[in-house]
Simulated assay, not measured.
Amino acid sequence: MLPKLAAHFRVIAPDLPGFGQSEKPPPARYAYGFQAFAESLVDVIAALGLGPISICGHGMGGSVALTLAARHHALVDKLVLVDPIVYPPRVDLLSRLANMPVVGPFAFKQLCGRTVFRSYFKDRVYAPNATIPWDRVDHHFDVFNAPAAREAALATLRAVADTRPLVALLPRVTAEALLVWGRQDRTLPVGQGRRLARELRSARYEVFECGHSPAEESPDAFADITTSFLSR
């Protein structure tokens, strides 16, 4: 999907702090959450000398993109939001563990192994009939399995559990948006997408026949519709 977009646009795919190959500072030094992530992207934009950008965010990344657009209007030209977390999701095992007092952090950091991780992707991310890229899922687990990464993930899950501050920012978003949702998303029901499309000032809403990850499950269709939207 990224090579298709890169044929038409300059594409930059940053890892947020705490994730992927980025630094994973302890929560005492970095306030994991939508606002902190958005401000980190402001730093990236400034460091690369970019003008107004089009930003694409999936899941929590969509929430970060909305926060950036609400707080820094001049930096965001267009938004591509893929199943973003804006309204309370259906609570899953990992989220329940993260928010349990005392025992939660221990269980999340010590007991959440590859089997639990794989089950989460199978039951919550991909559509029931999807072909799951287990190599990719296992790579995500290997990155997550480092102690600093687990600590960052726990802090993030706790910080984003309350989405009300993000909902309050929606009236401040002025950028034109393409909103893409998977009809079979088992974490964020498709009705949440319809609600968000109504609340944004200028949003085009598209529903794909897939789960929570349209860009992975329908990469060609996603690249085509995104290219069309960004080229207008």
Rank of each mutant, 00 (worst) to 15 (best):
H140I: 08
P27C: 05
D142R: 15
G51C: 02
L75Q: 14
I45H: 00
A70E: 08
A36Q: 05
F141L: 02
F144I: 08
A46F: 15
V64I: 07
H73T: 13
L81T: 13
P88W: 13
P133M: 07
I53D: 03
P128F: 00
V125F: 06
V64F: 02
T131S: 09
F108M: 06
P26K: 11
F106S: 13
H58P: 01
P84T: 04
F141S: 01
G104Y: 08
E39H: 10
V86W: 06
D142C: 11
P26T: 06
F108R: 00
C112G: 04
A74G: 15
V125P: 06
K24S: 02
A31M: 09
T115S: 11
L81I: 14
V91K: 13
P84Q: 08
V103K: 03
P133T: 12
H73Q: 12
P27V: 01
D77Q: 10
R114K: 15
L48E: 07
W134A: 00
A28T: 12
R71M: 09
V42F: 01
V42N: 09
V102C: 05
R29V: 00
A69G: 07
Y32K: 02
T67K: 03
K109V: 07
A46N: 15
Y126W: 04
C56Q: 05
T67G: 06
C56F: 00
V44T: 06
I132G: 03
R71L: 10
A38D: 12
